[in-house]
Simulated assay, not measured.
Amino acid sequence: MAEKYSLKEANFITEAQNKKGSYWKYLIPSFLFFGLIGINLAVMIAFDIDQSAIIKKQIDEIGRNMTFVSTIAPLSIFCLLILLYVKFVHKQSIRSLTTTRPKIDWSRVFFSFALITVFLVSLTLIDYATNPADYKLNFELIPFLGLLGLAVVLIPLQTSFEEYFFRAYLMQGIGGFFKSRLLALIFTSVIFGLMHIANPEIGKIGYVLLVTYIGTGFLLGIMTLMDEGIELALGFHAANNLITVLLVTTDWTAFQTNSILISVAEPSVGLEIFIPVFVIYPLYLFIFSKKYKWSNWKEKLLR
């Protein structure tokens, strides 16, 4: 039976136990990470750099698998660095950075991973069956097996960094400092979305795509606050990125891999771009809320 926590029993924001003016410690990794993002964006704008062209050049020179590694490896390394920083500088346990439960609930991670995997694979197969002209079969056994091995190791590290940094580290820091779960949710969700502004798909589709990225940030933030831990967010994010790089990619996104399928359809900017945020994401929240018996929505999200 799924457990049910009350606010008195569990509060993810206060798990950090920040005492004695330790909030300044949050500034160091925040300035470093956002500083790197800012410098990268400034250089791209100043020199009018076409990121899609850079990715294509890398693929021509070192292949898709090594281009994938060069794209994802930095965030994978950051995952290990943020966990070490929290443990040795904040003197905070990884468990308390992850969840309010006595130990990390891996069943939540695996359930979320399985749910998103089934959903994404099903939607892709349905779309492939109804719109086969929009896809090109790209499967080659050896390159795919190489991608599979790399992705299974690197994707969980990359997505875990983003979850530990945004939904755990910053959410606990901002929420604890301002004593506001709502402010922590809004800030981390918006910043998470804007972090993707330099992605090549933004240049292809337009800034309207930020609605999806910011909406995803809100989804993951709501899951974290309602469930009092990031286990569900960890599973969701890992499944979303892993299935994407393995199953279907395009020639104009950040990930251009040796996936099974390549989408050759021109990207749409119609109303369907909002379907994930306003239709599918609420469905995910409904499923999770029923399984884990979430309650006190107003207190957990707005106070």
Score class of each variant (00 low, 15 high):
residue 105 D to Q: 09
residue 46 A to K: 12
residue 123 L to I: 15
residue 238 A to T: 14
residue 5 Y to E: 14
residue 102 P to T: 03
residue 300 K to F: 02
residue 207 Y to N: 10
residue 67 T to M: 05
residue 250 T to D: 08
residue 142 I to P: 01
residue 274 F to L: 15
residue 247 L to N: 05
residue 167 R to G: 07
residue 239 A to V: 05
residue 152 V to P: 03
residue 191 I to W: 10
residue 166 F to W: 15
residue 88 F to V: 12
residue 258 N to K: 12
residue 141 L to N: 11
residue 236 F to M: 13
residue 117 T to M: 13
residue 185 L to Q: 06
residue 11 N to P: 06
residue 281 Y to R: 00
residue 232 L to W: 09
residue 92 Q to D: 07
residue 286 F to C: 12
residue 52 S to T: 15
residue 245 V to N: 06
residue 62 I to P: 10
residue 219 L to K: 00
residue 38 G to L: 13
residue 217 G to T: 08
residue 258 N to D: 15
residue 206 G to I: 01
residue 16 A to K: 13
residue 284 Y to T: 06
residue 112 S to A: 02
residue 195 M to H: 12
residue 73 A to C: 09
residue 69 V to K: 01
residue 26 Y to L: 02
residue 293 K to M: 04
residue 172 Q to V: 00
residue 162 E to Q: 07
residue 236 F to N: 05
residue 230 I to M: 09
residue 69 V to W: 08
residue 215 G to Q: 04
residue 43 V to R: 04
residue 232 L to K: 03
residue 141 L to D: 09
residue 206 G to N: 09
residue 259 S to H: 01
residue 64 R to F: 02
residue 140 E to P: 09
residue 290 K to M: 07
residue 29 P to V: 05
residue 150 L to M: 14
residue 180 S to Y: 06
residue 46 A to R: 11
residue 84 L to Q: 08
residue 45 I to T: 14
residue 121 V to N: 08
residue 287 I to G: 05
residue 263 S to P: 06
residue 265 A to T: 01
residue 135 Y to I: 01
residue 199 N to K: 07
residue 258 N to P: 08
residue 214 I to P: 00
residue 96 S to T: 13
residue 106 W to C: 00
residue 103 K to M: 12
residue 208 V to G: 12
residue 183 L to D: 03
residue 275 I to D: 02
residue 150 L to A: 15
residue 177 F to S: 06
residue 277 V to K: 02
residue 264 V to Y: 06
residue 68 F to L: 03
residue 132 P to F: 01
residue 87 K to Y: 07
residue 26 Y to N: 00
residue 23 Y to W: 15
residue 247 L to M: 10
residue 118 V to I: 15
residue 247 L to K: 00
residue 206 G to H: 07
residue 233 A to I: 01
residue 68 F to I: 05
residue 70 S to W: 09
residue 34 F to L: 11
residue 152 V to G: 02
residue 78 F to D: 02
residue 264 V to P: 04
residue 193 G to Y: 01
residue 109 V to T: 05
residue 230 I to Y: 03
residue 73 A to Q: 08
residue 4 K to C: 08
residue 144 F to D: 01
residue 284 Y to E: 06
residue 142 I to L: 12
residue 282 P to H: 04
residue 106 W to A: 04
residue 134 D to H: 09
residue 141 L to Y: 12
residue 14 T to P: 02
residue 125 L to P: 01
residue 53 A to S: 15
residue 256 Q to F: 05
residue 150 L to E: 11
residue 166 F to L: 14
residue 62 I to Q: 12
residue 194 L to C: 12
residue 24 W to K: 14
residue 234 L to N: 02
residue 20 K to V: 03
residue 277 V to W: 06
residue 33 F to K: 03
residue 48 D to T: 13
residue 276 P to M: 05
residue 41 L to H: 14
residue 8 K to F: 12
residue 226 M to T: 04
residue 231 E to D: 12
residue 168 A to N: 00
residue 222 I to D: 00
residue 174 I to T: 06
residue 124 T to N: 13
residue 67 T to D: 00
residue 132 P to H: 03
residue 78 F to T: 05
residue 176 G to R: 08
residue 187 F to I: 15
residue 204 K to M: 11
residue 292 Y to F: 11
residue 170 L to N: 10
residue 294 W to C: 04
residue 162 E to H: 02
residue 165 F to E: 03
residue 126 I to C: 04
residue 15 E to A: 14
residue 157 L to I: 00
residue 254 A to M: 15
residue 293 K to I: 02
residue 13 I to Q: 09
residue 191 I to E: 00
residue 273 I to D: 07
residue 195 M to R: 09
residue 10 A to D: 14
residue 112 S to D: 04
residue 103 K to L: 10
residue 74 P to K: 02
